[in-house]
Design a protein around this nucleic acid. Structure first.
Lengths: 241, 241
DNA sequence: CGCCTGTTTGAAGTGGTTCAAGACAGGTGG
DNA sequence: CCACCTGTCTTGAACCACTTCAAACAGGCG
């Protein structure tokens, strides 16, 4: 059954900006339903003009682009709290695809209501823009990583970023966080080959910097890893849609 | 002296969405001045919380990030019509720097007025979000390029994209467009070394696909170049701020 | 003229790719 | 219950696209 926004389990997590009562009330109207999908389900695809926006409530996904040469670039990992489909929402068309990596539950919003949001809820509209700018910021960081860092630095960057983000939504357990992706997914995200990604992971494991197995990532010293990955930014208080 | 928005020379270019009279009137109030800077001038820097937003009226610039290891990633080339500083505008802090590559003239807006825009001009607010989403889209494309394409494909992609964008603002002259950047700039944008970039340019020149010298880029067959660069998206009608 | 920035070229080195093959786990059908 | 998938991870070895090092050249400028 659809969770009421008032009881939204993720809204109160430390990562998210508090919402006023009026905002919660509006979101409750804006939300048209809840969706539950299995792992592997495509949520949005490149070129489509989806009538819907989603917010991930639980589970993990991937945003990616497929190239004419058959290669795949993973743009980012979708985690609980992420807004999905903003591009189609404002520009009318997706230029990347999104799919569920694990089972996911999602809030569903009506794209056509986005306009109402802009007209009547300036604060929320500002938040939407904040989210778009934040994604731009993330991609800029990813670009700098792929473009200028070594394989080891890149993997360390990705792990550290994911660890901090998961920590901020209370998914850290001791020194480990869930990581339900494959090495191929990580390779596609960092522009590396699967083989080299695997060898890089082995090296990080030997040095006790990061151990990734059975869907869980363990990081004994996150600050050391951040240093290796040349991480400069931390997740900041963000609005939730 | 300051151009009135009503007479804005770039608003009527084919690339930009028409603006209503009410919108023009608002922009005229939103705009607090005009700025003219020399080549090399830093406009915004990483970490700063600039009180201003700009729109490039003429001239060329660069957005880039500097890494702790001393390397530089160019995120994009700033062309006339581009909005600068949106990140600081909504998130309060820049995570990349922007500087002028040539002489530039810029419209200056007051960041604190951005909020007024969101409250009283929903359409314009929507446009701002559109712009943010469009930058995200571009960075996704750049990521796929750097991550998955060969050096030749990357250079072809960058050239084709710039050519089409400049064409859309009437800066094409026959088969040539202005390109006032250095090979080092391009190398930093594509995550390649200067030497290899230079050799790749030589190869494209030999094959008569693209000739870049003395600040001008000539492309005899843009569609062939787009194919080589695996270009899938074209510049689309965009709002101007 | 001397200096600076940007471009060009050659040659050597390497971080990463590609190819190949095996191990292991989970799932499926006979 | 076993044989046989298929997907993921792992490892070794050969190769090459790109980097790094080095040096020369061209144009603009005080």
């Amino acid at each position: 059954m659809a969770t009421r926004c008032a009881n939204c389990p993720i809204r109160k997590l430390p990562l998210f900006k508090p919402m006023s009562e009026r905002e919660v009330a509006f979101m409750e109207r804006f939300k048209i339903g809840e969706m539950s999908v299995q792992s592997g389900t495509p949520l949005l695809s490149e070129g489509s003009t989806s009538p819907q926006l989603f917010t991930a409530l639980s589970g993990f996904g991937l945003r990616y682009k497929l190239l004419p040469n058959g290669k795949k670039q993973v743009l980012s990992f979708v985690l609980p709290g992420d807004l999905i489909g903003l591009q189609a929402g404002v520009m009318g068309q997706m230029t990347h695809s999104v799919e569920a990596t694990t089972h996911m539950t999602l809030c569903v919003f009506n794209r056509s209501e986005l306009w109402t949001l802009f007209r009547n809820h300036a604060e929320r509209a500002f938040d939407v823009t904040w989210i778009a700018a934040s994604e731009e910021r993330f991609l800029g960081e990813a670009l700098a990583t792929i473009g200028q860092k070594s394989a080891t630095e890149s993997v360390a960057w990705a792990f550290a970023r994911l660890y901090r983000r998961l920590e901020a939504i209370n998914m850290r357990n001791g020194i480990t966080v869930p990581m339900p992706y494959t090495q191929q997914n990580l390779a596609d995200a960092l522009g590396l080959s699967l083989v080299h990604t695997n060898k890089t992971l082995a090296r990080l494991r030997e040095q006790q910097l990061a151990t990734w197995s059975e869907g869980r990532l363990s990081i004994p010293d996150i600050e050391a890893l951040e240093e290796i990955g040349l991480v400069e930014e931390k997740p900041s208080l963000r609005p939730l849609l």
